[in-house]
Nucleic acid binder design. Structure first.
Lengths: 138, 138
DNA sequence: ATGTATGCAAAACATTTGCACCTGG
DNA sequence: CCAGGTGCAAATGTTTTGCATACAT
């Protein structure tokens, strides 16, 4: 029951929050923009303001329930946090997003940060390309 | 003489363009936002509109004279293109930006893209951390 | 009750665009 | 001279905020 997750995060269990969680869990793609969530809510027949969606997603991010991807080109995208770190591959044609994990890269990053005298706190890696699907199409 | 570079790119050699190039070449840091360039121009006593800075930088990007970094947190940053591909390390405290090249990571990215059936067109990698300098300060 | 959450509209940002005027070749 | 470039102001798109109202505990 996700109400617990909300309470644990110090957030009151409200309808909008539960609905946003539900959408993140049941949507066909794991990666949704605030706008996507907003539209999905309306389609579900739930009243909500876009501002609330942003507020809720930001709070969820702070609580570690979701993570925010900062993709090139304006709007942010959110995904449910499942504890497993991973990076992303993005199709420049259809905007499909895939995930991957690569230990070699993870380690090299540590080494590079150390070489430069940085205490690494985070990193972001996006590989852009044309996915299988879109290659066929033309 | 950089007028040549402009002409080669099919751009008229105008004062604003030359000045923007000059600022990119002589600024103390290699990485400047449009706003930074704009302010530098004004300080130099040159009249320019912010819109022009954006237009010029975008054209330069198209011409391969500069590249655009899409860092987290809103505004884009531009650097003079020197032909050598590299990625970036960013200090989360002082916002210093350092560059690095790592063949191992470059290759792994190719492999990952291939495994996922992507034709890789580009990638963006940013390592965030606390730089040497900022570690001492506190 | 009472401190949070919400919705709406307005503000804030970074960036882009329309348009009349100016300028380089 | 004339296509292309510039400045300004207004438009854009995304995200944030102020404030009065509504709700969870």
């Amino acid at each position: 029951m996700e109400s617990q997750d909300l309470r644990k995060a110090g957030l009151k269990v409200t309808l909008p929050r539960l609905k946003v969680l539900e959408i993140l869990e049941t949507a066909d793609h794991r990666h949704l923009s605030a706008e996507d969530v907003y539209k999905a809510m309306l389609e579900m027949g739930e009243e909500i303001g876009l501002a609330t969606v942003y507020r809720v997603l930001t709070q969820f991010e702070g609580a570690g329930l979701v993570s925010r991807l900062s993709i090139e080109g304006g709007h942010a995208v959110f995904e449910l946090e499942d504890g497993s770190h991973h990076d992303h591959l993005l199709c420049v044609r259809c905007h499909r997003i895939e995930e991957f994990v690569d230990e070699v890269i993870e380690q090299r990053q540590q080494v590079i940060a150390a070489e430069k005298g940085f205490e690494m706190t985070d990193h972001s890696l996006y590989i852009y390309g044309v996915c299988k699907h879109c290659q066929k199409e033309k």
